[in-house]
Structure formats: C-alpha cells, structure tokens
Nucleic acid binder design. Structure first.
Length: 245
DNA sequence: AGGCCGATCCTCT
DNA sequence: GAGGATCGGCCTA
C-alpha cells in the first residue's frame, strides 16, 4: 500500500540546475520556457483558465513529447467556502491526495476505474489545497503526434482528437502513471515532466460545469480554448466565454 | 473485514 | 445513448 511517506519520497530532492541552463536549448529542442512557481501560488480558479495554451512536456529517452493544454478543470481545496464537494481534497489529507496539500507546481496523478490515470497540477500557497485537472492536449509537432499515437495504440494517421482528448487518454498518450509521475516538480529543469510557456496568448476561455462528477455538478469550473478541435467529450459543451487577463 | 464506487474509455446498438 | 471493465482507496460496521 502506498503510504504518505512513499508519496513524499517521490518529491525531487536534488538541487535544481541553475535557471540559465534551462533556456529552451540546454536539452533537446523544445519550445518555450519553464514556468514560474509564483504563477501557481494563487487561487486555483484564477490559475485554471490561465493554464490554457501552456505546454505539458514529458521527457523520454527518445525525446520530448509535447502537448498544448486546451481543457482543464479546477478542484478547490477545503479552505474555500463553501468547500468543493467534488475535490479529492474535500475531506482533508489522505495518503492518496497528500500531494495536493504540498507546494504548488507539482503533479498529482491518481488511479481511476481500475485501469486509468488522471493528472493534475497543484496550486495555492503552501499549506492550502487546490489542483487543476488537465483534461485535453493538442499534440505539438510531428514527433509528439507520432509518439502519442503509438502510446495510445492508434494508427499514425489517427485524427488529432483521438490522441489526448480526455484526462486518461492524455495520461496514456504521455505514458504517465501514478507510480512514476505522482508528486513530480513540474517547474524543475531536471524533471521528466514539465510545464512550459511558449508565449501562446489566451484572451478568452470557455466556461462550463465539470464533467463526470456527482457533486457540485453546476459549478462553472471547466475551462476550454473555445472551439478547439481537441476538446474532450461531445460537442456543444462549450458554455459562455470569459476574458482572461 | 467487507462493500461500494469513481474527475473514464471503449464497444455495441 | 447505454453498459461493462476493473481495482485502489475510503467509509461503515
């Protein structure tokens, strides 16, 4: 059984390389710059729509698999009023959800339905809980597209929507598991999983209720790039749009 | 100690 | 649009 100590043990403890080594060229060619911790040390529902357009990068032996985030959901910590009854952190820390209560900018990966995983990004200042479920990616570049198709068991000419549109599909596409990727610092130059910013500018986000939950079903905490081809689920789920400043 | 169920995906009708 | 797969974690007794 995975206990809290084991989860905490997965936190990177080696000293990060100097920021100057991560200028987008020190490793194999990959777009953008590593994101800043301060971006995530804010209210989860503030960060969520602003995470749209950013890059999730999984480094493999063969090279980086890169996806642009096009759909997310915010899950709020128990310090909010009223508390978010759909969040895993709702009833306080447990061995499974401990990462959510840790520092911002880390990955929270959990198992669901016996065979799948979902990946979140932690937010809020240290000591407070909150995380963002990454629900869909657009593959960036031919290598990423090919690797995602391979990892998903699809033909190389599969439609782009088939690759990483859905929280567990994207974990399959990137090869993410709880055992290997829970509690990773996504903002560390040495990490195998990173969040990067290539300057993609988001001015608008579609807002809808969250998908697949039984509590707080009408809370408007799902955010999408309006009309994007890689959104998960059936069409027509894009609600009103809000300006993202 | 045991039962229940899920932030899903895929197949079939 | 509906239903089955499949199991770790959380709740109740």
């Amino acid at each position: 059984m995975e206990q809290a100590a084991k989860v905490a043990h997965k936190r990177p403890r080696k000293k990060p390389d100097p920021p100057s080594k991560d200028d987008g060229r020190s490793r194999a060619h990959v777009p953008g710059r590593l994101m800043a911790r301060s971006f995530f040390e804010r209210h989860t529902d503030y960060v969520a729509p602003r995470l749209l357009g950013k890059l999730l990068v999984r480094w493999t032996d063969d090279g980086p698999i890169v996806g642009r985030i096009v759909e997310v959901e915010a899950y709020l910590g128990p310090h909010n009023s009223p508390p978010d009854p759909a969040a895993h952190s709702h009833r306080g820390p447990t061995p499974r959800n401990l990462v959510i209560f840790g520092p911002a900018g880390h990955s929270y990966v959990y198992a669901i339905y016996g065979k799948y995983f979902c990946m979140n990004v932690t937010c809020e200042p240290e000591g407070q809980a909150g995380c963002i479920l990454v629900r869909a990616l657009e593959p960036v570049g031919n290598f990423s597209t090919a690797q995602m198709a391979k990892n998903r068991g699809l033909r190389s000419d599969a439609h782009v929507r088939q690759l990483a549109s859905g929280p567990s599909r994207l974990c399959l596409a990137l090869g993410l598991t709880r055992a290997a990727h829970n509690g990773i610092d996504l903002l560390d130059p040495a990490s195998s999983l990173q969040l990067r910013d290539d300057g993609f500018a988001t001015t608008e986000a579609g807002v809808t209720p969250r998908i697949g939950i039984k509590h707080a079903v009408d809370w408007p905490l799902r955010f999408v790039l309006p009309g994007h081809a890689c959104l998960s689920g059936p069409r027509g789920l894009v609600g009103k749009c809000v300006f993202v400043g």
